[in-house]
């Protein structure tokens, strides 16, 4: 495992910590898209179907369990927690799941590495992860007064994908036959979706003003 991959995973992990921290400390999930959280949970469930059948390392297995556990914990906080669930911006979080899930499912049926149920579901998770942030980005644009932790959360998610791209470049040059078109193209699309956000995030940070996305 190279440093980019490890840094990417740690940043990804940190994004969960920041999100749980924000929700717990403020007892509010204002500005957080439940739809994005549900899509991420679906992504992890579909991707880690091999959790018990395909052992790679203790690190991998542990991280997978942590990602799954945290995702479900966040869903519980946003949907089940008495105090927190009333702070959810239901009226603003209107992105339709089907617009994302259906095209990704169709694409996975058409473009995959092998025609097996496991492989198609895994490919679906790769495609879905690339676009799962969209409801969150739309909600962010609608939310006035984005709090710092929400901004940092989205920034960390984007940074994680950027670091994975560096990891793929590194692996391409250091490991023979390491070519993964589906993962690479999806990952690049995913990172591009963040570019606009990055621009405003860095600008607000440099000018020391509160983050606000133009609508």
């Amino acid at each position: 495992m190279n440093i980019f991959r490890l840094a990417g995973d740690m940043v990804h992990l940190l994004s969960f910590v920041v999100l749980v921290l924000k929700i717990n400390a403020t007892k509010s999930c204002r500005g957080i898209s439940l739809k994005t959280q549900e899509l991420y949970t679906l992504v992890f469930v579909c991707r880690y179907l091999d959790l018990f059948s395909n052992f790679i390392s203790m690190y991998n297995t542990t991280m997978k369990i942590v990602f799954l556990g945290t995702s479900f914990a966040i869903l519980y906080l946003m949907r089940g927690h008495k105090v927190i669930k009333v702070t959810y911006d239901r009226e603003q979080d209107t992105f339709r799941y089907l617009f994302l899930v259906l095209p990704c499912a169709l694409l996975a049926l058409l473009i995959h590495n092998a025609w097996t149920p496991f492989e198609v579901v895994w490919t679906f998770s790769i495609y879905l992860e690339a676009v799962a942030i969209l409801p969150q980005l739309v909600l962010l644009q609608r939310t006035q007064n984005i709090d710092n932790l929400t901004g940092n959360y989205v920034f960390l998610l984007g940074l994680y994908r950027g670091l994975y791209i560096l990891n793929w470049i590194y692996r391409y040059f250091t490991e023979p036959h390491y070519i993964q078109w589906i993962v690479w193209i999806s990952g690049i699309v995913q990172t591009i979706l963040y570019l606009d956000f990055f621009y405003y995030y860095i600008k607000s940070w440099k000018n020391n003003v509160k983050l606000a996305l133009p609508s």
């Binding site: 991959r5 995973d9 990804h12 091999d50 395909n54 790679i56 390392s57 991998n60 991280m63 997978k64 990602f67 590495n113 092998a114 097996t116 496991f118 492989e119 895994w122 994975y164 990891n167 993964q180 993962v183």
Partner: peptide, 10 residues
């Protein structure tokens, strides 16, 4: 089998 070896990322 493609599945095992190449799915070592999260």
């Amino acid at each position: 089998e493609i599945a095992a070896a190449e799915k070592d990322e999260l």
